[in-house]
Amino acid sequence: LDERSVAEGLAGPVDIAVLCSPNNPTGGVESLEVVEQLLKDVPLVIVDEAYVEFARSGSSALGLLQAHENLVITRTFSKAWRLAGARLGYLLAHPSVIQGLMKVRLPYHLSSPSQLLGLAALRHSDETLAAVEAIKGERAAISEGLTAMGVCVYPSDANFILFETQPAGEGKGGTKEVWATLLERGVLVRDYSNHPLLSNCLRVTAGTAEETTAFLEAVEEVLGAQATI
């Protein structure tokens, strides 16, 4: 978002604004200036920071909490903490907001196993953060490798990379053909070609160094083969 698009969005009455930062599927981060602009004009601003552990320093809206009682930050254990099955998350907000939420909170909203898993994850946070740094390194390697092949890559502060295939569509060299050919080589990526504005895009999640190598080699083979058709 930029200041102009925010201003256009605020043309009518707005009660709640929700931002995903880093967002899915591009991995882009909203600037803190945009967040502050919304905080001035919207009664409640929610910033979803599900992927924030993978983001560069200074990306979080956490530093704005003290000055803005209408800011809520939500986070999850599903991404960096690798506990998607636990359905566990938390939020950071002013005490008055928390008090309001407690009035509508379900009595049995979180299972005991999920709570135990969360506590265990926190006890082993050093190992988790080390894994995050490794994933950030593989994300950079994927981005650099694709860029070197002439592939358009979207800047990402999440644990994935969104990239374009050319030309868009289902014909020779199209996105769906690239996806299918990669799958034949044992590489599964996310097909976003049915999404608005992403008709020629695929998304790959950063993993191990071996997975990065296998992915880049497969992409190079696929694109090279199609270039000769």
Rank of each mutant, 00 (worst) to 15 (best):
G186M: 04
R203P: 06
G169D: 08
Y192H: 15
G171N: 11
D41P: 03
E164G: 10
A50K: 01
W81G: 09
G63N: 08
V35I: 11
T76R: 07
A218S: 13
D2P: 06
P13V: 03
G100F: 00
A140Y: 04
L202T: 06
P13G: 09
S143E: 13
A61S: 15
F160T: 03
V222P: 07
S78V: 00
D15V: 06
E210L: 09
R123G: 13
P22S: 13
N159Q: 15
C20Y: 13
Q66D: 13
L198P: 01
E49M: 02
V18C: 11
C20V: 04
T208I: 10
R87K: 15
V132P: 05
T213F: 01
G63L: 03
Q99E: 15
G28T: 12
G173L: 04
K176L: 07
E217I: 00
G169N: 10
T128H: 04
L91R: 04
T175V: 12
F77E: 12
I98V: 08
E177M: 14
S111H: 12
R87T: 11
V52R: 03
S111F: 00
E33W: 00
T213K: 12
V219S: 06
R105K: 13
V52M: 10
L1V: 02
E170H: 14
V178C: 08
K176P: 06
L91H: 05
E33Y: 01
E30N: 09
I46P: 05
A209S: 11
V222F: 07
T147S: 11
E211T: 10
A131S: 14
L65T: 05
D2V: 06
K103E: 14
L223E: 07
T74I: 11
Y90M: 08
S78Q: 14
V18P: 06
I98H: 03
E221M: 02
L65Y: 05
A227G: 14
A148R: 15
A11R: 12
A148I: 02
A67H: 02
E69A: 01
A218G: 08
C152I: 02
R123W: 11
E170T: 15
R185K: 15
S193R: 06
S112F: 01
V219L: 00
V14I: 06
N70K: 07
Q166C: 09
Q115M: 04
E49K: 01
F163G: 06
S57R: 10
G137R: 08
C20R: 10
T181P: 03
G186A: 11
A55S: 14
Q37N: 12
E138M: 05
